[in-house]
């Protein structure tokens, strides 16, 4: 799967979730479904760049370009560190 395809799939999936979640929020009567759709939409959106980085790692590794494989792995670790930082913040406050 190419980088372009990953980005497109992520954007389309999250946009559909967010749009239907937003419509349901104001339509009323389906609060739980609306909340889940919005949360999924946000998480898919946040996950799209992460997925793009993972695909890049695979692509560089296939090309045996180890310098760029390593650099891209570092980027992935940084993204995961953001999630860890968020969790730590919540525990302390």
């Amino acid at each position: 799967m190419s980088i372009g395809a990953v980005l497109r799939a992520g954007v389309i999936a999250s946009s559909i979730c967010l749009a239907s979640g937003l419509v349901l929020t104001f339509a009323g009567g389906a609060d739980a479904a609306a909340r889940i759709l919005l949360q999924v939409g946000v998480l898919v959106l946040l996950g799209t760049p992460v997925a793009r980085v993972v695909v890049s790692i695979v692509e560089y590794a296939q090309e045996r370009d180890w310098t760029f494989t390593l650099l891209t792995v570092v980027v992935l670790v940084e993204l995961l560190a953001g999630a860890v930082a968020a969790l730590m913040f919540n525990r302390r406050l």
């Binding site: 946040l46 992460v50 953001g82 930082a85 968020a86 919540n90």
Partner: peptide
């Protein structure tokens, strides 16, 4: 996209 995600995750977690 990658840059914003690293920060957005922190706002999301908070």
């Amino acid at each position: 996209g990658v840059t914003a995600t690293a920060g957005a995750v922190i706002y999301y977690g908070r």
